[in-house]
Design a protein around this nucleic acid. Structure first.
Lengths: 208, 208
DNA sequence: TAATAATTAGAGTAATTACTCTAAATTTAA
DNA sequence: TTAAATTTAGAGTAATTACTCTAATTATTA
């Protein structure tokens, strides 16, 4: 079993990159900036990372696996109050999206610059959408949601993901991303896309 | 009254840019590519345009004013069947979005590279959203739509715009933009966000 | 301790590409 | 027809920035 040694420097590079990307214009940040901010030389940065894209991809992978670790259909399915559980899960995602907000905000830009990242993103996206699809079906099967035509489920799943993932792209076109703008995406999904389809049982769960 | 003389070369540059941006990766297209495709020299291109961004901004302005020329609240408000009129208008927008699809697809990238374009885009966006807001209120006032809480109108207007303008960003993250993917955005707005709120009167209008 | 391996600095390179400059060609005006 | 203005070509520049290379330092191991 090969042990991956965690290099402190490598970690420092990643953290610096996240902080700079989050707080400045992603496009304006060069590898030299990242190295400087990490307090190391440019050559050293390239000793740890093959190139700039690799840094970003590693950050994406980090966020992605954190996401997956919090993401559990079982937890929702076994909960007494699946809707509340879902809401909590959204709050955790919100924190995550905030920590890695440049990835959400500039996803389009980053994908345009790195096709490998685009592939990763796109694959991940498909998984999330089919997960949402399954979740909607589950909530309907449990008579928590009602009145959603079966043939609308796929497009609704797509739409939910679209809002979760792209609302920050939209927001950042006219203002800064804030924790509130992240919460806004959750609100849209719940208030506009879930609550109107609550069964009586579902309504009770929400009011609990 | 100063007459703007239309330069054939300038026009040729614009058309070439649109075609290249639409059909290739926007980021990969250089001014040299555009000049070559237009059959002129690079120096000539810069005689007509101050810089690359100016070309893109001019294309954006062109699309924007075409949009506005088709965009008429009056036409909807005076129509016997406002919903059908709205649907027709969406089809025209769809054509427009197709012709300038790189602007929709890569809006985030382009804005990241040109803050002036971002400002234009953002101002335009605000106008569209308040227009949609007004339209929703009108349809409600005419008892065509019902059941939409008043305090939800602003966020729904935002959401409608978001879907119209950003669905192509989402689509292009996993596949090519097609006329179908543009139509999909319309379908989502109508099927998911309008039809469920149709009054009996509204339903009749749709079935006409 | 000596030898080897891993890490680091930082100067320097290489490639890209937006944009400039000048002189020539063409068009317009007088 | 000649002078002036506009348009064009294309070679060349300038600036940026991702990335390389080498030599030195530090850590590890035998």
């Amino acid at each position: 079993m090969k042990e991956k040694k965690i290099s402190i420097t490598k970690e420092k590079i990643k953290r610096s990159a996240i902080e700079l990307f989050n707080t400045k214009e992603t496009l304006s940040i060069t590898t030299n900036h990242i190295a400087k901010h990490a307090g190391i030389s440019s050559g050293n940065l390239y000793y740890h990372y093959k190139n700039k894209e690799e840094i970003i991809r590693e950050i994406y992978t980090e966020m992605s696996s954190t996401f997956v670790s919090f993401n559990s259909f079982e937890k929702i399915a076994t909960s007494e109050n699946p809707l509340k559980e879902l809401s909590l899960m959204f709050d955790i995602y919100g924190e995550l999206f905030w920590s890695y907000r440049f990835l959400m905000r500039d996803s389009a830009v980053l994908m345009a610059m790195d096709s490998e990242l685009k592939t990763m993103f796109s694959k991940n996206q498909e998984k999330r959408i089919s997960q949402i699809d399954g979740l909607l079906r589950y909530l309907i099967s449990q008579d928590i949601l009602e009145g959603i035509p079966n043939d609308e489920i796929p497009i609704r799943a797509k739409l939910h993901w679209f809002i979760s993932a792209y609302w920050q792209v939209f927001t950042s076109s006219s203002s800064e991303i804030t924790k509130d703008s992240i919460k806004e995406a959750k609100d849209i999904i719940f208030k506009i896309h879930i609550y109107p389809f609550l069964s009586d049982k579902g309504k009770n769960l929400v009011n609990q």
